[in-house]
Write a protein that binds this DNA or RNA. Structure first.
Lengths: 205, 205
DNA sequence: CCAGCTGCTGAACAAGCGTTTAGTATATTG
DNA sequence: CAATATACTAAACGCTTGTTCAGCAGCTGG
């Protein structure tokens, strides 16, 4: 029997397996029995720990929100490598275990217009605005005529790497968040951000 | 008996109501009975016409793909207002009835990684690449160092307006696809595309 | 020592699911 | 005209769903 202070209590295992299944197939098409079976416990225990399937769902939401909170806090404290040209999406992926279900879950939260997803989006936007302000203060970026819209545009361009990763990989023939793809993507985006789309100076360096 | 090409057959009504419900809540959380009730028919008729719920789902997918095919065909033939600075997302929205469930359905197709969604994304990308080629040929746009990535970036930035419309509206305080929001968005994006993010000149060339 | 927790299971529950079936009315065909 | 096919419904089918319940094992506090 596991101790109550064990990191991997049955409760945590259930929550993690639920997160994986929810991210992969969506909460509605995953059954309590499937979660229980993936966590190697009985269906009754799932309800015992979370009250209901809906309770499990919000526990997963809170867990994911907590992960993002931690990441944003680290970013604000400067504990993350956020050098110029690095997308936050890329940084986020590096600070998550490989194959983490969290990006997939975030995708579902945003697609469904879920309140938990909107909250994460707001925090992401706030972090992006803070980063933009810092760049502007250092003279490294122009605020633009409509700074809020500018921030939103840059941030959305970053987020879409996470959201449309599979589709972009399909048309590009390379994973835009893999090693090669990320480099190509970052170079091209930086070029646009530096010279614009219409800029005639296309000299390759 | 109504003709097979009449769009007001019960079959078409069921398909349209299913599209609306699928877009709003996701196919998995919508029941055959709810669709039947929305279409004011019996649950049995839904099965009679589509064979199964899965059959309905793919009929809806085909219908949506057909709408996009028509739109892309019109765009290629030059029948759509695609003047500079207009996002395709915006154009698309104007060529759909107000409150159409199709953008919401596309969102679900893309973010769930559905094959039907990937197919639409591919066509969208091809249309974007064609438009980019035309602009480059007319000297209105630089191809960039990595034209494929450049096209993907511009196209995804456009798509983002559709996919994150609600979240952007929340953060910006204005619907980015509404009259005022679209104008602000277009102006800022054009500014970036013209002068880059770092450009010190706030004037348009 | 034992009373009372907590973690946990297996079996059972009612409700709701997608689907089937039997049948009716209406239209088309030969 | 009878025969056949289509559009459609009401009721029921078997199955799966989320959840409940009674009970068991092992820890903990008095």
């Amino acid at each position: 029997m596991r101790s109550a202070h064990d990191d991997r209590t049955a409760r945590a295992v259930i929550r993690d397996r639920a997160l994986e299944l929810f991210a992969a197939r969506g909460p509605d098409s995953v059954t309590v029995r499937q979660i229980a079976s993936a966590a190697e416990v009985s269906p009754g225990l799932v309800i015992h720990h979370f009250g209901s399937k809906e309770g499990l769902r919000s526990a997963v939401d809170e867990h994911v929100a907590g992960v993002f909170d931690g990441l944003f806090a680290r970013a604000e404290a400067g504990g993350l490598d956020m050098s110029d040209g690095r997308s936050f999406a890329e940084t986020l992926l590096e600070n998550l275990p490989p194959g983490s279900p969290i990006p997939g879950y975030l995708r579902r939260l945003l697609l469904a217009g879920d309140a938990a997803g909107t909250a994460i989006f707001r925090r992401w936007f706030a972090a992006g605005a803070a980063a933009a302000d810092a760049l502007v203060a250092r003279g490294l970026m122009a605020p633009g005529r409509d700074p809020v819209v500018r921030t939103a545009f840059v941030m959305a361009g970053d987020l879409m790497l996470l959201l449309l990763r599979d589709q972009l990989a399909d048309v590009l023939g390379v994973d835009p968040l893999g090693a090669e793809g990320a480099a190509r993507w970052a170079e091209e985006v930086l070029d646009i951000y530096r010279n614009g789309l219409f800029g005639t100076e296309g000299e390759t360096s």
